[in-house]
């Protein structure tokens, strides 16, 4: 296990961190939309929201990634595998985040929303300034937990050809023929990234709290 290998794994870890952070933020934004849809007054919108949540929670992430990777080009949309990977992770995590946020949105006091309406705030503004901060504060532990799940699940994007931590480890393990130290080191990198993410979550909790 020479320094050179650690360096290559660190580059992979940086890609993993980047892919995960973009997917987590994009997924959270999309999750807010899906959650709002699943709580909407219109029956059709509500059904669409529920269907989205049910499908993305009901099939494996690996299958969803393969669908995006193979089906987008078949439909004439050519995207780099990195974009497909981020999109796949974000679409999947949005369904879980929508479920996480649901309880939070439901427990926002109706009086607060009525007061905001009386003041003439636009609906999107009420969502961003009142409902979302309250819902997020109430559901932060579950939201952070899902962020950590996505960081780990990002190892699956190695299958669609993104050169991230798991893929780098695979390449190194095959070329050096020493899988145990390489995969153990990759595991250690994931552990460090998780700890950093959890630490960032703690800061966020204090800011919101």
């Amino acid at each position: 296990m020479t320094w050179r290998y650690v360096e290559l794994l660190a580059i992979g870890a940086a890609v993993t961190a980047g892919v995960s952070i973009v997917a987590i933020l994009l997924g959270l934004g999309l999750g807010v939309l899906v959650c709002s849809a699943s709580l909407a007054r219109s029956g059709a919108v509500r059904a669409a929201g529920r269907l989205y949540i049910s499908f993305f929670r009901g099939s494996p992430l690996l299958v969803q990634l393969l669908m995006i990777y193979y089906l987008l080009p078949a439909a004439g949309i050519n995207v780099p595998s990195l974009v497909a990977a981020v999109l796949g992770l974000a679409l999947c995590t949005a369904a879980y985040q929508a479920e996480n946020l649901r309880g939070g949105f439901l427990s926002v006091a109706p009086g607060l929303i009525e007061a905001a309406q009386m003041l003439g705030m636009a609906p999107w503004r009420i969502l961003l300034r009142i409902r979302l901060p309250i819902a997020l504060r109430l559901t932060l532990p579950a939201v952070l937990n899902e962020a950590i799940m996505i960081l780990k699940a990002s190892s699956l994007v190695s299958v669609v050809g993104v050169e991230e931590l798991t893929r780098s480890a695979q390449n190194l393990a095959t070329s050096t023929y020493r899988p145990i130290p390489i995969y153990a080191a990759a595991g250690a990198f994931y552990l460090i990234l998780n700890r950093l993410l959890a630490g960032g979550g703690g800061v966020l909790r204090r800011m919101l709290g």
Partner: peptide, 8 residues
């Protein structure tokens, strides 16, 4: 990740 454990 599960995948890393599985590879190990």
């Amino acid at each position: 990740p599960f995948l890393i454990q599985l590879f190990l």
